[in-house]
Design a binder for these strands. Sequence first.
DNA 1: CGGTTCCTTGAGAGAACTCAACGTCGGTGG
DNA 2: CCACCGACGTTGAGTTCTCTCAAGGAACCG
Lengths: 222, 222
Amino acid sequence: MPFDTRPSPAASPDTLDALWTSAWSGLMSLPAGKSLLEPGARAQAIYQVRAGCLKSYTIDVDGTERVRAFYFPGDVIGFDALGADRYPAHVAAVTASQVCRLPVTELRALLIRAPELTQNLLERMSRDLAVALALSGDYSAEQRVAAFLVAMGERLGGGGSVRLPMARRDIASYLRLATETVCRVLGRLEQSGRIVNENKTVRMVDTARLRFLAGVPALHAA
Amino acid sequence: MPFDTRPSPAASPDTLDALWTSAWSGLMSLPAGKSLLEPGARAQAIYQVRAGCLKSYTIDVDGTERVRAFYFPGDVIGFDALGADRYPAHVAAVTASQVCRLPVTELRALLIRAPELTQNLLERMSRDLAVALALSGDYSAEQRVAAFLVAMGERLGGGGSVRLPMARRDIASYLRLATETVCRVLGRLEQSGRIVNENKTVRMVDTARLRFLAGVPALHAA
DNA sequence: CGGTTCCTTGAGAGAACTCAACGTCGGTGG
DNA sequence: CCACCGACGTTGAGTTCTCTCAAGGAACCG
């Protein structure tokens, strides 16, 4: 349940959509592993993913990487920087990616020019907030992994087959589990016939059961 | 570190502040335990706490209560409903409280009339988002409790002495721990001389050490 | 003052973590 | 084209932390 990160398009007039869409510019290509944002840097722009996959992460005192979020095409990067005016975390490409840019100054101007867009923005942020709150719950390793698979399946829409471009370590870090635990759970899910684990691709066989394991399906239904 | 929930006032022109402040109306008094919002209800208004303490919580499938947030005077309740147009959780008074109201329609009108306020709103939401993300990390029971105490101390500003109006059970639920674990950690902190535990009030003796235990002090410093 | 709820402390169980080893994949250079 | 190397993935054994179950003590309310 906790892992739907899709900022699905709001049902707003075409003109607003167009305004929003055309605001983005400066397509940028990033090879796998390349850093896009550094924590502490002035938040001069937000970004939208056009292709590939990126991750947001922090490095804590003992040098451990903590993945905060994964971003896929359509997702906006940088909302969490608007408050403090500084980026709070690293953002780097997981696979070769393309992103486009919207300077914060232009975002503000745009919102003053078209206040109706604010609604859209608030919706996206409040959805992110709801997901983050859901993620902070205490769930078993099995629940977390199942929910992650289900959410990724819905997010990427591969029809029961999910390609996970990120390393097991990244998934584990995101789910607050040990890498080994993720492997073990995937192994157990495969043994019990719920999934088929093919390298970086997971085929979900028993989706209903996975959803049940994930717990509350409400968040996805909504 | 993860627990600063204060939406501290943004440094914006007096007129904007005044506009924001005067938008709120309908002071409402709630006795302890009284429910303010129910999940699923149409989000017709957001609220601001004027006095007391409230909590936001969900009830999951097995009937367990999960506390999502505590609200104190100045905090805004309901941001997370703006996206889905429905409140996502229960909100109830922990102690006798007073709140005032801002209908969503008026909020939208206000934002169109004074788009500069949007910035303020985005800042509040993005701060909430950052806190929620921080809270979702995996921390030891000791880290969580220490961080909670430090954050509450900063939040309520009682000069090293924090009054915790909510039950241990609520704190435990919020921190994703068992009630007993919270008690045990408080006991250990007291035995090692870091705090003095007087019923509902905790005096922080070794604040520096508590901050260290809480981990990254960055979030508070910023 | 009795009852209820909350807080605290103890003993045992279970889930996830750490440590460790081995197998696999992908890239690089001979 | 193949062999090697390093990073990643998987699996096992033992440990640790927190949870659950249980009971006694303290505070609050009628």
